[in-house]
Structure formats: C-alpha cells, structure tokens
C-alpha cells in the first residue's frame, strides 16, 4: 500500500474509534458528575433497543434471497422464538434456529441435486 493509502486507513480507524469512545466517556462523565443515573437522555435510551431491532431487520434478509431461504428463515426464527420463550436464554435458541435453518437448506440441496 502507498503512504497515502496507509494514511486513509489510519484516518478511518481513528475516526471510527473516536465515534465509539468519545460519546461513551462523555456519558460516563455526566453520570459521575451531578446528574446521576438519570443522565441518559430519554431519546437515547429509546434509540438503543431500536438500533438492535434495526440490526435484526438487516440480518433477517437471507444472504441469497429465494422462496426457499425465506421459508427457512421464517421457520428458523420460529424455532428460535419458541425455545427463547421456554428458556429465556441466548445460546440454545440460537443453536435451535441455526439447526432448523441449516437442516432445511441442506435438505433442499439433497432434493435438488439428488
């Protein structure tokens, strides 16, 4: 890589790091100063869970969208949700979802090729 390209990498890395660090330290300072645990603005507390929901929405779209992958996605998410309602944990529901999704995708490969 050229020197200018290295500088571009460093500028991108530094800018991204500052966007992660500075708001965090700013809020910690507000919390420990005079405003206490209610220092987090209401809109920011709302935006946190919504960002996770947005990441979920982006992640739901299959890598290669097709009727089959959408069906596998729907069934995989259903399995995840059902197990989550029983266990209220992270690991097993995710494993169940991936297993159902993977089984449908593998089965379809066998049917199509076989």
């Amino acid at each position: 890589m050229s020197t200018s390209l290295w500088l571009a990498v460093i500028a991108s890395a530094l800018g991204t790091l500052l966007m992660r660090v500075v708001p965090f330290l700013w809020m910690q300072r507000r919390l420990s100063a005079r405003e206490g645990p209610n220092a987090l603005p209401g809109w920011l507390a709302v935006l946190g869970p919504l960002m996770i929901a947005a990441v979920l929405g982006v992640a739901i779209v299959p890598v290669n969208p097709s009727a089959l992958s959408w069906l596998a996605t729907a069934l995989g998410l259903t399995a995840t949700l059902l197990l989550w309602r029983r266990t209220r944990s992270l690991g097993w529901p995710v494993a169940a979802g991936v297993s159902v999704f993977g089984a449908i995708m593998l089965l379809s490969q066998v049917v199509i090729t076989g």
Partner: peptide, 14 residues
C-alpha cells in the same frame, strides 16, 4: 449460507 443465520436468531432473542 447457513452460519450467518446465527445473527438474526441472536438478535431476535435480544
């Protein structure tokens, strides 16, 4: 195709 499904499953539980 299959491994990335861990992400939507995880975010659903969150």
């Amino acid at each position: 195709d299959i491994m990335p499904f861990a992400l939507p499953a995880l975010f659903l539980t969150m």
